[in-house]
Amino acid sequence: MTDPMTIAIATAAAGKAVELTGEPLRNAAVALARLVRDRFRGRPEDEQALERAADAHDSPSRLEALEAALRRVMDEDPSFRERVETLWSQTQTNATAQDDAVVNIFNGNAQKVVQLRDHHGDLHL
């Protein structure tokens, strides 16, 4: 099962160019990638998944292999998972809109979430 958080982190760790707006967001993404690279160091199979994805970061199968390695390490090490999730949350929170753009951020669990912009007229929920 593909998890959007782990695939995004795997993509950043592989060095794939991601368009990020704002220095705080870039810094959080770089910190995430560094954390993953440091955690994979000394684990040949995981290092290989990272290297293969970095060599061909447009390859879905290589990114999926890196995502699986990341997911496995997070499952094995709850404190690593917590650090990853904290940095991921910071990355999401540091997203800012520029010009006429919109950034909607929702973290957590909810039955229903509604996010709007520039709504005109009635709204019935």
Rank of each mutant, 00 (worst) to 15 (best):
F40T: 06
F40R: 04
R41K: 13
R41E: 00
R41F: 07
R41T: 00
G42W: 03
G42N: 05
G42K: 01
R43N: 12
R43V: 04
R43Y: 11
R43W: 09
P44H: 10
E45H: 12
E45A: 15
E45S: 11
D46P: 04
D46R: 14
D46C: 11
E47H: 07
E47R: 09
Q48T: 13
Q48E: 14
Q48G: 06
Q48D: 12
Q48L: 14
A49E: 01
A49G: 08
A49T: 11
A49W: 02
A49S: 11
L50P: 08
L50V: 01
E51D: 13
E51K: 15
E51N: 14
E51S: 15
E51F: 13
R52Y: 09
R52P: 10
R52V: 14
R52T: 14
R52S: 14
R52C: 09
A53E: 03
A53R: 02
A54I: 02
A54W: 03
A54N: 04
A54H: 00
A54M: 07
D55I: 06
D55Y: 09
D55A: 15
D55Q: 15
A56F: 02
A56W: 07
A56S: 13
H57I: 06
H57E: 00
H57C: 08
H57A: 04
H57N: 15
D58L: 04
D58T: 08
D58H: 09
P60R: 07
P60K: 01
S61M: 08
S61Y: 09
S61D: 14
S61R: 09
R62F: 01
R62S: 08
R62V: 05
L63T: 02
L63M: 04
L63I: 04
E64S: 13
E64D: 13
E64M: 13
E64P: 09
E64K: 14
E64F: 11
E64R: 14
A65L: 01
A65S: 08
L66F: 06
L66N: 05
L66G: 02
L66I: 02
L66S: 00
E67C: 03
E67D: 00
A68Q: 11
A69F: 00
A69L: 05
L70Y: 04
L70P: 01
L70D: 10
L70G: 00
R71E: 12
R71C: 07
R71S: 12
